[in-house]
């Protein structure tokens, strides 16, 4: 296979990935290629930027290093393809919307939250930014949005976007592997919560929800939230 052909195929795979239509095989190939080819990696970053702009997500201007952070994320993802040792990174990244097509297994297994630290606040409006201490390394990975799913049935034979919603049949929480040793001085790192942290978060979320059922309630929704957080072993 000539280099050019290979290249084209990678680009095709990349497009497919952005449309959520990539196969597992292609995915592996892309991950591998992105780690070795700066060009593929850069192209990927541009796709992601463009895609998130089109989804009307707020993204930081290019020059504040979003592209760099994506590249960093890509690098962190790479071990998943090779050794599986990067699964925890994938879990954290699964929270980011554009990343979702990447980490299928990880997303399916992640039932609870991805707690995120250390990511600069991309979404802070400038007004709010004034209030916050600038150097604080606080997570602002965008909240995963629930795509609006159309009620009307999609006609068959037409292009149907890959479902953004996953039906969870196995909720066995592969929640918190070893927390990665924090890399000092690195600003854009996502960190998985420790078990203690998960327990605490679950507890406060449950307590909050049960209380909310009696305040400004929407019927039984808070109970659904409260019960959702219960996990075996937490």
């Amino acid at each position: 296979m000539s280099h050019g052909n290979h290249h084209d195929r990678l680009n095709e795979s990349l497009s497919a990935l952005m449309d959520g239509e990539v196969s597992e095989l292609e995915l592996q190939r892309l991950l591998k290629a992105s780690s070795s080819s700066a060009e593929v990696s850069a192209r990927w970053s541009r796709y992601q930027l463009a895609a998130s702009v089109m989804r009307r997500e707020q993204v930081a201007p290019v020059d504040t290093g979003l592209a760099a952070s994506i590249s960093a994320a890509v690098e962190r993802e790479e071990p998943l393809a090779q050794s599986g040792g990067g699964a925890e990174a994938a879990d954290g990244l699964a929270n980011s919307r554009w990343w979702r097509p990447l980490s299928r297994g990880a997303v399916a297994a992640t039932v609870a939250f991805a707690a995120i630290l250390g990511v600069q606040q991309l979404q802070l409006s400038s007004a709010d930014r004034g209030v916050q201490s600038g150097g604080e390394l606080v997570a602002e990975v965008e909240r995963p949005a629930q795509q609006v799913v159309q009620s009307s049935p999609q006609p068959t034979g037409f292009y149907v976007p890959a479902p953004s919603t996953r039906s969870v049949s196995t909720a066995s929480p592969r929640l918190v592997p070893d927390s990665q040793p924090g890399v000092a001085g690195q600003a854009v790192i996502q960190q998985m919560p420790t078990p203690e942290l998960m327990r605490h978060l679950n507890r406060v979320m449950i307590q909050h929800s049960e209380q909310a059922a009696h305040v400004g309630s929407q019927g039984m929704v808070p109970f659904a939230r409260a019960t959702y957080g219960e996990q075996v072993g937490l």
Binding site: F113, A115, I116, L117, A139, V141, P144, L197, Y228
Partner: peptide, 11 residues
């Protein structure tokens, strides 16, 4: 061990 500053998001 809960010395954590940041946010967790679930839905």
């Amino acid at each position: 061990e809960l010395n954590f500053k940041g946010r967790a998001i679930r839905g």
